[in-house]
């Protein structure tokens, strides 16, 4: 069984009998990811009509469409497990679910978009690579489709950042650097609190839906992204992140109480995201009914 995890878990397909914990866990993972794809994309949408060239606009639009596509494939996984898609956005609006910390912010400048995209995308790729080793196979396959598209987003982010770093003026390049320093701690927090000591008590790890701990994923991500960032010409301040002689990455620990506050819709753009989704759903309700009613 090529998909068996290292722990030798059994894997499951949609109609297989499976423990309730696996079914509910997979449904929750897929629904949470769907929500985050669908709401997380809004911070890029805000910049679509400011994208400064025809080609850039095409690439950004393709990326935005892909993110909604990711929301769609994982929402389908959740739907098959009994979570209607309408509930995914509704639960968010009614406060039953929350989006990740990184999606409670907006980009203040175009220069911030590149590094923000680059860090977010690469962290998401690392995380999906881990989750794709999980025991619920329809979700694992959905993640592999997502990963393929993320590699375009990643290259796009590199190109966008590189464009400004090579051709922008000193002030513009400085803002890219600031953007990197602003987003790095947010992504470190996004990957979750340290759990090396507690992972084995995590039920999702035990049933095989969460194959790696937060610390493992965070280290894997830093291993990959920091050399890339340096090669682009950005300065990596050791106060933010540094490599110990052991090879392990050290970083300034996020203020978890503060992160929790942000996630509880206490971030600078939390209300804006909620408002956007609420307005879109209200405005389009009759058209959605028309589409379904006539079909």
């Amino acid at each position: 069984m090529p998909m068996a995890t290292a722990a030798g878990h059994r894997c499951y397909e949609l109609w297989d009998p499976m423990p309730d914990e696996v079914r509910e866990g997979a449904r929750r993972f897929a629904a949470v990811q769907a929500l985050n794809e669908l709401v997380g994309v809004l911070q890029y949408v805000e910049w679509l009509d400011r994208a400064p060239s025809h080609t850039r606009r095409q690439m950004l639009m393709a990326k935005i469409q892909d993110e909604v596509g990711h929301g769609h494939v994982v929402a389908r996984v959740a739907e098959d497990l009994g979570m209607p898609r309408e509930r995914i956005l509704l639960d968010y609006l009614e406060g039953r679910t929350k989006i990740h910390n990184i999606f409670h912010y907006s980009f203040a400048t175009w220069e911030e978009v590149g590094p923000g995209l680059l860090l977010t995308n690469s962290a998401a790729i690392t995380q999906f690579q881990s989750l794709a080793k999980g025991v619920y196979l329809p979700y694992a396959r959905a993640l592999r489709k997502v990963e393929r598209e993320e590699s375009f987003h990643y290259q796009h982010a590199l190109d966008l950042t590189h464009e400004i770093l090579t051709h922008g003026d000193a002030e513009q390049r400085r803002r890219v650097q600031e953007g990197f320093e602003l987003w790095l701690p947010r992504i470190l927090a996004y990957l979750g609190p340290p759990d090396t000591d507690t992972l084995h008590t995590n039920r999702m790890w035990q049933v095989g839906l969460k194959p790696d701990g937060n610390d493992e994923v965070r280290q894997a991500w830093l291993n990959k992204i920091i050399p890339v960032v340096r090669k682009l010409g950005l300065h990596v301040d050791p106060a933010l992140v540094r490599q110990a002689p052991s090879g392990e990455w050290e970083f300034e620990m996020p203020d978890w109480a503060q992160v929790k506050k942000v996630i509880a819709n206490g971030g600078p753009s939390s209300q804006r995201r909620l408002d956007w989704v609420r307005r879109a759903l209200d405005r389009n309700a009759p058209y959605r009914r028309a589409l379904q009613g006539v079909a």
């Binding site: 809004l42 679509l48 606009r57 639009m61 769609h72």
Partner: peptide
């Protein structure tokens, strides 16, 4: 094309959002 791009996240429905995204991109192309 630009107007349709904004409607990708209007969430009339997910499949519809994706279709609108392609039509918008093709209009730009």
């Amino acid at each position: 094309g630009n107007r349709l791009g904004e409607h990708i996240v209007d969430y009339i429905d997910l499949e519809e959002a994706l279709a609108v995204g392609s039509i918008g991109q093709e209009a730009l192309a």
